[in-house]
Design a protein around this nucleic acid. Structure first.
Length: 274
DNA sequence: CCGACGTCCTGCTAGC
DNA sequence: TGCTAGCAGGACGTCG
């Protein structure tokens, strides 16, 4: 499940492999992704050169020398990789951008929850994001974050998954951050004390930073931009550890559904506040 | 306006 | 052994 740390790893991996290399051809698969690829976009892309690649939330932005942007979302199973010439084509390969050094920039996505779009200019990217994206979870503005949490009657799990509150957190790092802050996923935002908001904010920043250091987490499909698996899955405290011992107290980790998502927590370290 | 829930998609797996 | 129901979840549409 590519969340911020996985997407950041892809971007860092791809940067030295694609920047400055002209796109000489585009091959598009027949199956539709979440956002359809317009046929005329191929002509817009061929002949351009990536000048930069960056990340915003879970989105990847490839800045082309035409001023346009390739906007990529990995969804659940998306893989965005650069491979040397002559690599055999795998299943579920939806885009192949041939580069002028012979290598290929590829987008593969088994479940097709992701998307690849061509956006004419930087000014139009915000619209493509859909709802406004919240801040990156590095230096989260403390006061607005606490106010958003405390003014909401939604539970913490739903709040952390909301990309307009905070960009880049998904199911795995929401669970890991809640454990780190000692908060129960079903606790309502409105029942938090200012101190709880601070603990949660810092826990998110720490979890995300460590996960980036570990090159993200590979559960099944995720690989980085050069094809390498992640390493942070070995550091999970609660996610996917149902029935296993809590690293703090030894109590068996439990799994419940919150906000429609599997949510893992320690019933002793994370007590509900409401 | 807000929050909850269903939908998309494929592959793996638990359970009979 | 072989089959199938259920689950995985990011973003978004719909419903109450």
């Amino acid at each position: 499940m590519p969340e911020l740390p996985e997407v950041e790893t892809v971007v860092r991996d791809l940067r030295p492999l694609i920047v400055g290399r002209c796109i000489v051809s585009v091959r598009v698969g027949s199956k539709k992704l979440r956002k359809p690829w317009e046929q005329e976009w191929a002509d817009c892309v061929v002949g351009t050169t990536p000048l930069a690649i960056r990340r915003r939330g879970k989105w990847i932005l490839v800045d082309l020398d035409s001023g346009a942007i390739l906007l990529v979302h990995l969804g659940m199973t998306g893989q965005f990789t650069a491979v040397p010439a002559g690599e055999p084509a795998p299943d579920h390969l939806h885009f192949t951008f041939a580069l002028n050094d012979g290598s290929e920039l590829r987008y593969r996505d088994t479940r097709r929850f992701g998307s690849v779009q061509w956006i004419a200019s930087d000014a139009l990217v915000q619209d493509a994001f859909g709802e406004r994206l919240g801040p990156e979870p590095f230096d989260i503005p403390a006061k607005p974050f606490a106010e958003a949490l405390r003014s909401s009657r939604r539970n913490l799990k739903a709040l952390l998954l909301d990309q307009s509150l905070l960009a880049g957190v998904g199911n795995i790092y929401a669970d890991e951050s809640l454990f780190r802050s000692g908060l129960h996923p079903q606790t309502l935002g409105s029942s938090l004390k200012p101190k709880d908001c601070d603990r949660l904010r810092l826990a998110i920043e720490e979890v995300i930073a460590k996960a980036i250091d570990g090159r993200g987490s590979t559960i099944r499909d995720y690989i980085g931009g050069s094809g390498l698996r992640g390493g942070y899955q070995d550091e999970f405290t609660v996610y996917g550890r149902t029935g296993e011992a809590c690293v703090n107290c030894g109590t068996a980790i439990e799994m419940i559904r919150v906000a429609g998502r599997a949510s893992h927590f320690c019933p002793k370290c994370q007590k509900r506040k409401n």
